[in-house]
Write a protein that binds this DNA or RNA. Structure first.
Ligand SMILES: [Zn+2]
Ligand SMILES: [Zn+2]
Length: 718
DNA sequence: AATCAAGGCCAC
DNA sequence: GTGGCCTTGATT
């Protein structure tokens, strides 16, 4: 902390060699032509072949009313056309309806679009409002669309009209419309937005026919969908997705490349671990009452009993664990949840010391032995004690390398802030409670719920058996991690990366010497510059991001840096609805922005922030969304979009699952958040539009990263 | 303001 | 080195 020196905060990632000086050094490297590097060749061949290939300029289909009302039929028809247009760079279409009320005989024109800037590589079908000639004409030239990609669906945002234009996905089709846009999942409306403002509302009966409006949609997302809606209707995948076209890759920027390619010292201690260590009896709440039958869970727990009727607050706190059984390691009283399991205070301390001091013990009786662990004997053999700690599920990752105190941490197996729907103190009978425990069982929970607990004895089988139980008892809950108590790895990684850079509070001095306008601009751009660096550092801490090639990393960052900067801004400003937070203590409101001639973009960001605030964006969701924004397989110049798509898919699935379980009251949260990603794209486009034409060189250092990105982004957007 | 898991302290 | 109790601080 406190690294308030004017130099860059020396990255909390201590080991990383990314000091301010080094960054500066990197910058100065520009001059030296460290070649743009070898371009991968094989993909290119293919690409060129594709792009040079002649495509039908346009195709036209006319939909009958029956097709319009039958999603499947519509989809089929569209598929046919799309197949015909395969390889085209971009598709747009228009619903040609002369009168708004007409559902009949609407015509959809799909035409290929000449290589367009922002989304050249993404085959998207967007249905736009009929709006006579004017629009069509405009469309001919520069109708830009933004595309965000979901597991298997694409959402198209028409940048000229602040609304989601379409959503597309390969499987089931559905079409909905009107001035109100409806997002359907498996033919069920999960949310609707209208107009520019994006109201909320759910509603809209399924099977709405297409009218003139902007429309449409079509997504269906396999597993994720099931998660939310139990639709028995199964879809067969018939990918419409068209092979990606890739434009001549943009020149790589030496600095940027260097920045990205410096591998961080991965100090993440492998999150891997057992894929199956969900745990936790979500209990906690139920501790007190429950099971009227066996008041005290038997077992001669050594509660102080005598005297201490009302001990210290500490003693008080410990009491809540008394009927949870003994410490799985040594049999002492449980004092809380430590490093992944419920354990006693001494084992907690022991584990901490051992890990922190990197102690390595050796059992005098051989490595195979299992010395007895009990209150009295636990001190005899640290080696066996440590082994047992690990066996029982204590996580080394839970020990903080930086010794930060307080706060909450996340690691696989960490207990969630329970907001269990249940929780109602008033009620649920012992039956419910015990059932819950049984279901939730798994390593840690299993041990704890066993009243007897055969002290030691290795039963490594516990885990397996409890999982069997779990499967037997859980008839429902199909997808993935039923463990409502542990987060998927990708989410944890996202959050960790976020935390990594979060506290680098850029103590940007935005000096109050705001007298000079030039100085103001310069300060603001410097601020952006720093945030860019932070962005790069953040991305490099993302394990998923590091699985793609350096070239692709650069492409991804170039693709989304504006979005992420805007998003960052929204996040910072979440607490101040009416103004944008530039730094810790500097805000700017609409009026002030107007004076700077930036009210347009500021207004957009404010609106977006307001929406995010209303939706209740949490840190976890924010972290995940950032990854989603980053990992866009449609980014220009990607040599291996498949990997990116895989990451994206995983993240989307995980996030959806997470929002569903974490916010049971807001089943649409994921959808709402996802639509905000589209808004973010639009906002970023606006921001870019505002800046792209300007010459910022007077305000920037000659070798600034910002400048570099500006140049390359200009190149790509023509 | 309340939680609560992580680190720290310090007699023993 | 142990382990009971205390302080922290992000989250809710
Ligand atoms: Zn213990
Ligand atoms: Zn031993």
């Amino acid at each position: 902390m406190a690294t308030t020196t004017s130099t860059n905060p020396a990255s909390a990632t201590n080991m990383t060699p990314t000091s301010a000086e080094e960054i500066a050094a990197l910058f100065n490297l520009v001059g030296s032509s460290s070649g743009p590097a070898i371009q991968t060749q094989q993909p290119l061949q293919q690409q060129q072949q594709l792009s040079s290939q002649q495509l039908p300029a346009a195709a036209e289909i006319v939909l009958t009313s029956s097709e319009l009302s039958d999603p499947m039929a519509l989809q089929q028809k569209l598929s046919a056309v799309l197949a015909q247009l395969r390889n085209s760079s971009s598709l747009t279409g228009a619903i040609d309806g002369s009168d708004d009320s007409a559902n009949l005989g609407q015509k959809i024109i799909i035409r290929t679009q000449p290589q367009q800037s922002s989304t050249p590589s993404c085959p998207v079908l967007s249905v736009v409002k009929p709006e006579p000639e004017f629009q069509l004409q405009q469309q001919q030239q520069h109708r830009r669309v933004s595309v965000v990609t979901m597991p298997t669906a694409s959402v198209v945002v028409d940048n000229n009209a602040p609304i989601v234009t379409s959503i597309q996905c390969p499987s089931n089709a559905a079409i909905a419309t009107t001035t109100q846009q409806v997002l359907l999942l498996n033919n069920k409306p999960i949310m609707a937005t209208c107009g520019p403002a994006a109201a909320t509302a759910t509603a809209a009966a399924p099977g709405i026919a297409a009218t003139s409006g902007n429309v449409l949609l079509i997504p269906i997302d396999s597993a994720a969908a099931n998660f939310q809606l139990q639709t028995q209707q199964q879809q067969q995948q018939q990918p419409i997705l068209i092979p990606q076209l890739q434009p001549q890759s943009v020149q790589q920027q030496p600095q940027f490349k260097k920045l990205v390619s410096v591998r961080p010292k991965i100090e993440q201690t492998t999150f891997s671990s057992a894929p199956s260590t969900p745990s936790q009896p979500d209990g906690a709440g139920g501790v007190a009452g429950h099971a009227g039958s066996s008041s005290s869970a038997g077992s001669g727990i050594t509660i102080g009993g005598s005297g201490c009727v009302n001990g210290s607050p500490w003693q008080q706190y410990i009491k809540q664990f008394t009927n949870m059984g003994p410490c799985p390691v040594c049999g002492d009283k449980i004092s809380g949840y430590h490093y992944g399991i419920f354990s006693c205070e001494s084992c907690k301390g022991f584990f901490k010391r051992t890990v922190q001091n990197r102690k390595t013990y050796v059992c005098h009786r051989g490595s195979q032995s299992a010395c007895e662990m009990s209150l009295l004997s636990r001190k005899k053999c640290p080696a066996c004690r440590m082994r047992k700690c690990l066996e029982k599920g204590m996580k080394v990752e839970a020990i903080r390398g930086d010794r930060t105190r307080g706060g909450r941490s996340l690691y696989t197996g960490m207990r969630l802030q329970q907001n269990s729907v249940v929780a109602a103190p008033a009620a649920p009978t012992s039956v419910a409670a015990s059932a819950t425990v049984a279901v939730a069982s798994s390593s840690g929970a299993a041990q704890l719920s066993q009243t007897s607990s055969s002290s030691n004895s290795t039963e490594s089988s516990t885990l397996a058996s409890s999982q069997q139980q779990q499967q037997q008892q859980q008839q429902t809950d199909p997808s993935s991690d039923s463990s409502a108590s542990s987060l998927p790895t990708c989410i944890i990684e996202a959050v960790n990366s976020e935390r990594m850079v979060m506290h680098e509070e850029d103590s940007l001095d935005l000096a109050e010497s705001a007298a000079d306008e030039t100085a103001v601009y310069r300060a603001l751009l410097l601020l952006a510059e720093r945030r860019l660096y932070r962005l790069v550092r953040w991305s490099r801490h993302l394990p998923a991001f590091n699985t793609v090639s350096t070239e692709d990393q650069i492409a991804l960052l170039q693709n989304c840096w504006v979005e992420l900067l805007c998003f960052d801004c929204c996040w910072r400003s979440l607490q101040t609805p009416s103004e944008i937070r530039l730094t810790a203590n500097k805000c700017i409101n609409l009026e002030a922005a107007r004076e700077l001639g930036a009210h347009g973009i500021v207004g957009e960001i404010l609106a977006l922030t307001g929406d995010l605030c209303r939706i209740g964006l949490s840190l976890t969701e924010y972290a995940c969304l950032k990854v989603i924004v980053l990992m866009q397989p449609d980014a220009q110049g990607l040599s291996c979009p498949e990997k990116v798509r895989a990451c994206l898919d995983e993240m989307c699935q995980s996030l959806m699952a997470h929002t569903v379980t974490a916010c049971p009251n807001e089943p649409n949260k994921f959808a709402e958040l996802f639509l905000k990603v589209a808004d973010l794209k639009r906002t970023a486009t606006a921001a870019w539009a505002m800046l792209a034409g300007k010459d910022l060189s007077p305000y920037l250092e000659t070798n600034s990263l910002l400048m570099e990105l500006f140049k390359s982004s200009r190149l790509r957007s023509g």
